[in-house]
Computed example of a mutant assay.
Amino acid sequence: MSQNKNALIRYKTIDKCLQNQYRKWTLEDLMEACSEALFEYEGKESSVSKRTTQLDIQLMRSEKLGYNAPIVVYDKKYYKYEDEEYTITDIPLTETDINVLTETVSMLKQFKDFSLFSDVSDILQRLEDKIYAEKSHTQPVIYLDKNENLKGLHFLDILYQAIIKKVVVVLNYKSFKSREPQQFIFHPYILKEFNNRWFLVGKKKVSQPIVNLALDRIEAVDFDFGHPYAEENFNAENFYKDVIGVTVNQGQRVRTIRLWIDADNAPYVITKPFHHSQKIEEHREDRSIVISLMLKINYEFERLIMGFGEGIEVLAPESLRQRIRDKHKKALRKYDLPVK
């Protein structure tokens, strides 16, 4: 690993430590934390010296890196941020940064006709928006839906590293149905986001099927270098092509689903299809429509239908129609009772 990347990992680690105001951090504590962070990234012992940590703190305090970190010493041996809200990850862009980013975005946009660009165009759009906001000192004009309070987001980086380095992880995982967390090894293949929640997709054992685990149910993550990583030719596009969401009921066949959509909701369903297989079968005189989908029915799809209330009617298959009808009946009964 390059020395520059090593340094960035150390700065990020020191920053993360000092954000934790509930613990007292000595220089030795910061040295140990940096050593552990480098071990996680490199997979080998890397002892950070006292001198290196002192220089890191000095650089973080200075203007050289643009941090100007308010690191202070108290009780003659403990380090902390004088401003408890400070973090190096929330530093405004300098004019030089903005100029470099502007040139980079302009260069990348020259490749807009290549298929690769379609995968990164939204990222560049957000980057352009950030640059504009910094230049004009205005609020960004692009806002994406996100949940800052979602649990488990801090595991994204370590899980990402495990996936790209093909390392088995040990997870402490507590499902909504469990009273106590369970610990098990896991072979991670991809990270998937759906409806503002992140999921880790992989296998517990080579012989077992692919499963997804919600990051907000993970309580601890560690690397396990003792277990060989289960290589698998996992293709996420193929795996999820017949479902909406993250739940894939393996072994279940694809069904033809027919839905009636009322006039109020029809424009939304037309302009934002539920799935790539969606086809409009009928346009009715009352401006309602009938659509068909080719899907494996799962929990997420049923929740999607329920969310439209009376605006959607399942026409086929009959088993799904009955299940949605029963759910609506149960919901209606609750509204027939007085509020407790």
Rank of each mutant, 00 (worst) to 15 (best):
P228K: 10
K204G: 12
A220N: 13
Y189S: 03
L200M: 11
I244R: 00
F225R: 14
Y189E: 04
E237Y: 04
F234G: 02
L191M: 07
N196T: 11
D224T: 02
G202Y: 08
V211W: 06
I218W: 04
Y189N: 01
I185K: 12
P188A: 00
N235P: 08
N212S: 15
R217C: 13
F184W: 05
K203E: 09
L200T: 11
F234S: 03
R217E: 09
P228M: 05
N196E: 13
G226L: 06
P209S: 10
F225S: 11
A214G: 09
R197A: 10
N196F: 05
W198M: 02
K204S: 09
N233F: 03
F225N: 10
K204I: 12
H227R: 11
N196C: 09
N233M: 08
D224I: 04
Y189F: 13
L215S: 04
P188Y: 10
D222M: 06
I244M: 13
V221C: 02
K205N: 15
E231A: 12
F239C: 01
K203F: 11
G202D: 09
N195K: 12
E231G: 06
E237F: 05
D222L: 04
K205D: 15
P188K: 05
P228I: 05
F223G: 07
F225W: 13
P228E: 10
N233L: 10
R217L: 11
D216A: 01
V206C: 05
Y229R: 02
F186Q: 08
V221E: 04
A236H: 04
Q208M: 11
A214K: 01
K203M: 14
Y189P: 03
F199V: 00
Y240H: 01
F186L: 10
S207R: 14
D216L: 02
N238S: 12
P209F: 07
F199Y: 15
I218K: 01
N235A: 10
D224Y: 12
P188L: 03
F194W: 15
E237M: 02
N195R: 12
D222E: 15
A220I: 00
F234Q: 04
F199K: 02
F225P: 07
N238E: 15
K192Y: 13
V211A: 04
N212H: 15
I218Q: 05
V206Y: 11
L191A: 06
F234R: 02
D216N: 09
K192G: 07
I218M: 07
V221W: 03
I210C: 07
R217P: 06
D224R: 00
L213C: 08
I185M: 10
H227P: 00
A230R: 00
I190T: 14
D224W: 07
F186H: 06
H227S: 14
D224N: 15
E219I: 03
N235S: 12
K203L: 14
F239D: 02
N235E: 15
E231H: 14
F225M: 07
Y189V: 03
F239G: 00
G202S: 08
L200K: 09
D242Q: 08
F194S: 12
K241W: 02
L213E: 09
N195W: 02
K204V: 12
K203N: 12
F225K: 08
A236G: 01
Y240S: 01
